[in-house]
């Protein structure tokens, strides 16, 4: 399997990428880790005339604290996420989830930006970014805008990212100390996409859930942010009844397709089950029990 013919660009700076995107528009695709794009090109499902490789641009890599936000460069690999002391200490949901993405070789290439921007509902980072209320920094020659992860996704492989824009970094409001978080994913085997997965963040105060966010992976056309599921536990002691109500709300939000990973009923049930498990683990982390 060999991809179609294309012209290869390896710019050294973001401005060069933006100039190329401005000039080439949808004739060009951005190559980050390539582990979604290159297989699509081999199948000729994608046949870009130009490929813009962003791997030589150091400014797009790295994980750092910037005031109240954690910034992840779009070309940062999943292996770098796993190895990040900053994320392990302050945003453990990301390295824990990254360890469940693909396999070691793929994680050496696959990037957070690709995972977020690709628009594949099977990708794991979108739901997590929704739960963390992250924003995506999108740049073009015309300027820069920030779009909340919760507003970014429109459908399968459809996002608000314009043809002339590049996702340069992801900004995550640093979770306060005491926020519990968990990503629970059920999959058939190493490297597979989720049958269903749930990302949960929650904070407790005086024995009550003061804040929560819940989002689901691979049970709809996009990652699904479920306010109803989070509302079911907010203000409660997060007892069994509240957790059950949240799981029911997650199942109501889920609209999976039947595929090799299971029937609609099974995948819907797993969306509920992953929500339960993620709430239980996030709660235990929030309360230190």
């Amino acid at each position: 399997m060999t991809p179609g013919v294309f012209e290869y660009h390896r710019p050294k700076a973001v401005d060069e990428v933006l100039a190329l995107l401005g000039q080439l528009g949808d004739d060009a695709k951005v190559l980050a880790g390539g582990h979604s794009l290159v297989p699509m090109m081999k199948l000729r499902l994608a046949e870009p005339a130009h490929l813009i490789d962003i791997n030589a641009i150091d400014a797009l890599r790295g994980i750092r604290q910037d005031g109240a936000a954690i910034i992840i460069g779009a070309a940062t690999t999943q292996a770098e996420v796993i190895a990040s002391d900053l994320l392990v200490a302050k945003c453990s949901i990301l390295p824990e989830a990254a360890a469940q993405i693909a396999d070691p070789q793929v994680r050496n290439c696959a990037t957070v930006g690709g995972n977020c921007a690709n628009g594949d509902p099977g990708n794991d980072d979108p739901a997590i970014m929704m739960a963390l209320d992250a924003s995506y920094v999108l740049r073009s020659q015309g300027g820069e805008r920030q779009v909340a992860a919760r507003d970014f996704y429109e459908g399968v492989y459809a996002t608000v990212l314009a043809d002339n824009e590049l996702l340069t970094e992801i900004r995550i409001p640093t979770p306060a100390a005491g926020v519990g978080m968990s990503y629970q994913k059920i999959k058939r085997k190493v490297g597979d996409y989720a049958i269903a997965a749930a990302a949960v963040t929650l904070a407790m105060a005086d024995g009550r859930c003061a804040d929560a966010a819940i989002a689901l992976t691979n049970v709809g056309d996009t990652a699904l942010f479920s306010s109803a599921a989070a509302d079911a536990i907010k203000g409660t002691s997060v007892d069994a009844a509240a957790i059950d109500a949240a799981a029911q709300a997650a199942m109501a939000a889920a609209a999976p397709a039947e595929d090799l990973r299971g029937t609609v009923a099974y995948r819907t049930a797993m969306a509920g089950q992953m929500t339960r498990r993620a709430i239980v683990q996030a709660l235990s982390r929030a309360t230190g029990s």
Binding site: G34, V38, D103, Q105, V106, C109
Partner: peptide, 22 residues
């Protein structure tokens, strides 16, 4: 398709699947 790993090589000190890199 980057699943099986039979094409694994070491590039710049990292294991990669050479079927999915140009």
């Amino acid at each position: 398709t980057s699943h099986c790993g039979a094409c694994t090589v070491d590039l710049n000190g990292k294991s990669v699947k050479s079927c999915t890199i140009f």
